[in-house]
Design a protein around this nucleic acid. Structure first.
Length: 963
RNA sequence: GGGCAAGUGGCGGAAUGGCAGACGCAGUGGACUUAAAAUCCACCGGUAGAGAUACCGUGAGGGUUCGACUCCCUCCUCGCCCACCA
């Protein structure tokens, strides 16, 4: 039977048949085990689907189809993350309205998803911007309110002046807006927050219970940022309690000063009268500073002394209180003790402002002893350096240290003395500086110390550049202070490292000076957006009753239709202008009241959508409890790594809240998470031109049109992520049109491992297409001879048939394991190998027939079915089978058939391959050894040598150790 | 500055302690064709050699092992994420 591989008509035909037969409709009640496979739902954009999206959806589709064939009841739904900034910004740009653009884009996305053959159950399609959906987003918002997890507070929020809204911390990347790269400002606005911080501990601990990529778990851990330490109460001289947080309570004795955040509430009270004006000015400056400046670690430290002192409770020492923007009000207690000997930032601050520094603390574990030898105090070391002229500067993150010649001589003399005594301590800082520069590796400290002395004595004696020179500089400067070493608490003295820290906290608690405390970098989740296109916050503000939830029977609070929805920038949402909508009666007391006019950020909508899929049409509950208990947690969740700390953290938080409320029986929503690799596009770049016209080394991406207009030498191509804003997106449409959806599917799976980034090129598509064509021709060429009863004709097979059948079953084993393990590239390679063997067999077969060849066709089609479903179903039906491959059973591997009779083993001498030999597959070690030693070639090699040892690995190799 | 992941032919990649380069792309030669495309066959890491073959070869250096792309240590490079969090 001749049938050209006309993928255009075949793919269309199959997609129609699937729709008519409703093959992807999911049943809820079944005896089969369940499998819930899900993709991150996309926000519909005008650019349509890219080949990058396909890299997400195709693998999930393969696994879901495969699971169906393995006997699972599979839920594989899709929906639209339609609310939010991206959709709204795009509509503004196009001078349209999101209510118009979003449905339009959804149609395109859906068409493309169907075009590439993704088997979604469209009867469960959801749209986060439809009232039927967001009614329940509002319902969950109120659940959070009831549970004390949603609150409104006035606070300086991240304000994007371009998007004209506030953003969550997670949405600020390098001080820039995640959507438009505009620098973020601080703005004081009343904002709704979710108390995600209450769940910080659980959000870290439960990571251990889920099967996620380690890198994502780590990112979440770092983002939540748990640290263990203590809160210690210092007293101001006036008697106020100033609580500081530290992770190093064991260094309390080295506290040299105190720093408060500029906004710290006690600053006003503590500051001396003459400093008030300067403090106010400093606060104004700090506020004006954009987040990007504040985050710049290279910048000089700033701060001022507030004219007051505090008393260190452990030693009664009086230390000055400063304010600086390197201490942040939002973390810990907004106050720190500064220990220059142990903290580089404190050290730098002390240097900048000439604050007296206390030296390091003696400890038993040797760590600090390496800095100061036991007998250093009072032996002249400090005195010798007391009148040193030392200058320093920070340069590219390093300290440039200059010693005057006299100081260098003294330093050398002392260091030599210590070295002679076998103590390398005084040069330790120097040693580590140079060691980390790689100059003296792999010497030990003592040897390195001597080498460095040698350097000091020669031309390098006056100016040395230290990498990581903190330790050295600290040692020198601290000893100039002529202070002897300060001890820790006597009870703690003999402990070192983390034990010292722990014991010190015990000691502090015992004395009532402080307590154990944990801190998190995670802040509460700011959910208000001063924008139109989002889920309205279901709250009414009453002058008497405060913020009152809209009664459940009045939900959803529908987003009103407005012509002009663009953000005003006033700090209020456009909804605030609709008087008829805003003015309502208080549901509690009936007084005149106003609706909340802010909307929720898009991440609220996506924090529970995986629950809605189980019962998308229920209008009485957000989700059916029993069905949620049946389907969830999600067995496979696939999407990009860019959501590591946003969506994935929020969804985990909401799930835990629902769990606590008794609504779901699980604590984690996504059992297994996979991140597909990025798709990179070769994108033109040019040198960044500064305002004054000079060009820098930094490259910025440009559009293809601009690249074409520039001289070629000014254009550099770089592989960067596909994004609409760079106009380097490749759409799947052209690929499907030229090569077919099935070829596109093969190519995207085959080109690289699932989680590797790929550099997109159309070149490889041809290989996928060729392979499919070859398989097609071979199967249709044989179709008239195809024997459905191949299983009954397995006796009296020729050696070629046995060999092909063996290959078939080995392939089944590999493909099965590889699909299950997300190794699609090697699964396809194995299928290609099988097809190549079949091709060779087929060529020899001529016009003959073979039941084994029929068996191979049957299993090959079913192995291809999840990967190339259109072609597979077409062949399936032409072979005379009813229905669709997705309802057939995946081929079953038979180990008895796959087993080899004979195996080729490798014979090595001293690990080098010298010969090969065939042995029975189950040959024992003795037999293999015998064969190896009898080998002609080996005999020759061994002539005149003694065999010391023979290593034999059954079925694999014999290695002869001979001298 | 910190963390994570990776580095293998001309290219994408395979092999996770046992024959390095599976599978595919590109390339070279040949068959078919009036010709081209498509298809089929052969070759396809480097050096030496007509050849069989020999030696070298998985970012660099060292180590463990009978045997290392694979495990350990140090360094280099690229990528991603985080970054004044006390």
């Amino acid at each position: 039977m001749e049938k050209p591989y006309d993928f255009r008509s075949i793919e269309k035909e199959m997609q129609e048949k699937w729709r008519e037969a409703q093959v992807f409709l999911t049943e809820d009640s079944t005896d089969k085990p369940k499998f819930y496979g899900m993709d991150f739902f996309p926000y519909p954009s005008g650019a349509g689907l890219s080949v990058g999206h396909c890299r997400n959806y195709i693998p999930t589709d393969v696994v879901c189809r495969y699971k169906r064939m393995k006997g699972f009841n599979v839920l594989h739904p899709m929906g639209w993350d339609a609310f939010g900034l991206p959709a709204e910004n795009e509509a503004i740009k196009k001078k349209s309205h999101p209510k118009k653009t979003v449905p339009e884009y959804i149609r395109t996305y859906k068409r493309q998803m169907n075009m590439i053959g993704i088997g979604y159950d469209w009867s469960r399609e959801i749209n986060s911007s439809s009232p039927e959906y967001y009614k329940w987003t509002q319902w969950i918002f109120q659940l959070l309110m009831k549970r004390g997890l949603a609150y409104r507070s006035m606070s300086p929020a991240n304000w994007c002046p371009s998007c004209k809204t506030v953003l969550a911390n997670e949405e600020v990347v390098d001080g820039l807006c995640w959507r438009c790269d505009t620098p973020i400002e601080k703005k004081d606005l009343p904002q709704w927050f979710f108390k995600i911080t209450d769940y910080a501990e659980r959000l870290i601990d439960d990571l251990d219970t889920i099967d996620w990529p380690n890198s994502i778990k780590l990112m979440q851990k770092n983002w939540i940022g748990r640290s263990d330490g203590a809160e210690v109460v210092f007293k101001s001289e006036q008697g106020d309690d100033i609580v500081i947080y530290t992770t190093r309570p064991d260094t309390l004795w080295g506290a040299s000063f105190m720093v408060l955040a500029p906004e710290h509430p006690l600053v006003e009270k503590l500051a001396s009268a003459d400093k008030k004006e300067a403090i106010a000015e400093y606060r104004r400056q700090a506020e004006r500073q954009s987040a990007i400046d504040r985050q710049n670690t290279e910048k000089e430290k700033t701060g001022i002394f507030i004219g007051a002192c505090a008393i260190n409770p452990v030693n009664g020492r009086r230390i000055p209180i400063w304010i600086s923007d390197y201490v942040m009000m939002g973390y810990g207690t907004g106050a720190i003790m500064a220990v220059p000997a142990h903290d580089e930032r404190d050290f730098e601050f002390a240097l900048k402002f000439g604050i007296e520094m206390l030296p390091v603390i003696k400890r038993a574990d040797g760590v600090s002893k390496s800095v100061v030898p036991e007998n250093a105090a009072g032996d002249g070391f400090a005195e010798a350096l007391a009148d040193a002229k030392i200058s320093f500067a920070r340069k590219d993150g390093n300290y440039l240290v200059t010693l005057d010649a006299g100081t260098a001589d003294k330093y050398i003399a002392l260091a030599e003395k210590y070295l002679a005594e076998g103590a390398f301590a005084p040069v330790a800082g120097t040693v580590w500086g140079v060691v980390s520069a790689g100059a003296f590796y792999p010497w030990n400290s003592f040897e390195a110390g001597q080498a460095i002395l040698g350097l000091l004595k020669t031309e390098a004696r006056t100016v040395m550049e230290y990498y990581n020179g903190f330790g050295f500089l600290r040692d020198v400067l601290l000893h100039v202070e002529k202070n002897s070493i300060i001890n820790s608490a006597p009870e703690v003295e003999k402990f070192g490292g983390s034990e010292a820290k722990d014991k010190t906290i015990d000691w502090l608690e015992e004395k009532g000076l402080g307590k154990r405390a944990k801190n998190f970098k995670l802040r509460d989740w700011l959910i208000s957006r001063q924008r139109y296109w989002g889920c309205p916050i279901p709250v009414i503000h009453c002058p008497h009753c405060g913020a009152v939830p809209v009664p459940e029977e009045d939900l959803p609070v529908e987003l009103p239709d407005v012509e002009n929805y663009e953000p005003s920038g006033s700090g209020e949402s456009p909804l605030a202008n609709i008087d008829s909508w805003v003015n309502v009666k208080c549901p509690v007391c009936g007084a005149d009241a106003k609706r909340e006019t802010d909307t929720m950020g898009g991440f609220a909508c996506s924090s529970w959508y995986f629950l809605r899929y189980v019962s998308p049409h229920r209008d009485d509950v957000p989700f059916d409890k029993d069905l949620a208990a049946y389907w969830l947690p999600v067995d496979l969740y696939v999407g990009g790594a860019e959501h590591a700390v946003m969506h994935l953290l929020y969804a985990r938080f909401w799930t835990k809240v629902l769990y606590d409320a008794g609504l779901v029986p699980f604590k984690e929503p996504f059992h297994c998470l996979k991140n597909q690799g990025m798709v990179l596009s070769n994108t033109p770049h040019k040198a960044l031109t500064l305002e004054d016209g000079s060009k820098t080394k930094e490259l910025v991406s440009i559009f293809p049109e601009e690249a074409a207009s520039l001289p070629p030498e000014e254009v550099t191509y770089k592989w960067v992520k596909m994004s609409k804003s760079k106009r380097n997106v490749v759409s799947p449409d052209a690929m499907a049109e030229e090569f077919g959806a099935d070829s596109l599917r093969i190519y995207e799976l085959f080109v690289a491992p699932f989680d590797d980034a790929i550099q997109w090129s159309n070149e490889g598509m041809i290989g996928a297409s060729r392979f499919l064509n070859r398989v097609w021709r071979m199967i249709y060429g044989y179709m008239e001879r195809y024997d459905k009863d191949f299983a009954k004709h397995t006796d009296g097979l020729s050696p070629e048939e046995t060999a092909l059948r063996r290959k078939l079953h080995k392939t089944i084993a590999k493909v099965d394991a590889d699909i299950d393990g997300f190794k699609f590239n090697t699964a396809i390679a194995a299928i290609m190998e099988l097809a190549n063997d079949m091709q060779a067999f087929y060529a020899k077969l001529g016009s003959g027939s073979s039941p084994v060849f029929s068996e191979c066709i049957y299993d090959l089609v079913l192995m291809l079915a999840p990967i190339t479903p259109h072609a597979a179903d077409c062949i399936w039906q032409d072979l005379g089978y009813e229905g669709f491959t997705i309802n057939a059973a995946f081929p079953v591997f038979d180990p008895a058939i796959a087993k080899d009779d004979e195996k080729e083993i490798v014979i090595q001498i001293l690990g080098k391959v010298k010969a090969k030999a065939m042995v029975p597959a189950d040959a024992d070690k003795a037999h293999m050894e015998e064969v190896a030693l009898a080998n002609e070639r080996i005999q020759k090699e061994l002539a005149g040598k003694t065999v010391v040892k023979v290593i034999t690995v059954p079925g694999k190799l014999v290695n002869i150790v001979a001298k």
